[in-house]
Nucleic acid binder design. Structure first.
Lengths: 100, 100
DNA sequence: TTAATTGCTTTATTATTTAAAGTACTTTAA
DNA sequence: TTAAAGTACTTTAAATAATAAAGCAATTAA
C-alpha cells in the first residue's frame, strides 16, 4: 500500500471545463476561444465564464485583439497556473494510484 | 499529437468526494463510513450526501448493519460503478495526455 | 443521570454549471 | 443598401451541486 490519504484537489481546477482549458494550455503555448470551445466541447457562455474564473485566479492570461475586423480572444497559461496545474496532477495521482 | 478532443467526464464521478469514494472502493473490496471519511478528509454530512448520490446512480451498494450495538455503514462498488469508474479514468486520460 | 460521544441524516446556505438571451459588430445576399 | 444571417463573445437566470451547520437516535463515560 503506497497511499492511504487522498490529497486535496484545487477547486479552481477541478471542473471539467477548467481542467480542459488548462490541459490544453499546458501543452500548446496559446489557444483561441474557438479552439478551446471546440476541443473541450462546450458552449460559448460556459467557456467565457470559466475563462474568467481562471483569469481571476491568475491561472490564465487573456489577450483581446482583432483578427481583421473581428474580435479575437487568445489565452495562455501563466506561470502560476502551470504550477497549480502540475500540483493538481500530482495530487490527482493519489486518487488514481490509491493503494497501488 | 495523439489527441485533439477532450472526452466527457461522467458528472456523477467528477466531484472530489465521489471520485475519492470510488477510487477507494475500486481498490478495497469494502469500506466503512468512517474509513471513507478519514481517508477522503471530509465531513459526515458531505460523505452521507455523496454516498446517497452514488447509490442512486447504482455505482455503490450500501449495507447497514450493527457493530455491537452501534450502527455501521459499509460500502462497496457495484459492477456498474466499476465500469463507470474505469470509463471515467479512460476519458480522463484524454486530459492528462493532451497532445502527448 | 446527565453530559459527551458516535454515527449518521437532514436542512439551509453558498457556489457552480448550464442554458438562454443579449450585445456588438461583420458578412452575405437580395 | 438594407435586411438577414453569422461571428464572437458576455450577461443573466435557472437548475444542480457542494459545503457547513443543525438535528436525531442512540450509546458510552463520568
Amino acid at each position: 500500500m503506497n497511499s492511504n490519504k487522498l490529497l486535496p484537489l484545487d477547486p479552481v481546477i477541478h471542473s471539467r471545463i477548467r481542467l480542459g482549458i488548462l490541459s490544453i494550455l499546458a501543452s500548446v503555448e496559446e489557444a483561441t476561444f474557438n479552439y478551446l470551445k471546440e476541443t473541450i466541447g462546450t458552449t460559448d457562455g460556459n467557456l467565457s465564464a470559466n475563462l474568467m474564473k481562471l483569469e481571476e485566479a491568475g491561472y490564465v492570461a487573456i489577450k483581446k485583439t482583432f483578427s481583421g475586423r473581428k474580435p479575437k480572444t487568445t489565452c495562455r497559461i501563466t506561470k502560476k497556473g502551470l504550477t497549480a496545474f502540475q500540483n493538481y496532477l500530482q495530487n490527482l495521482e493519489s486518487y488514481l494510484k490509491f493503494n497501488k
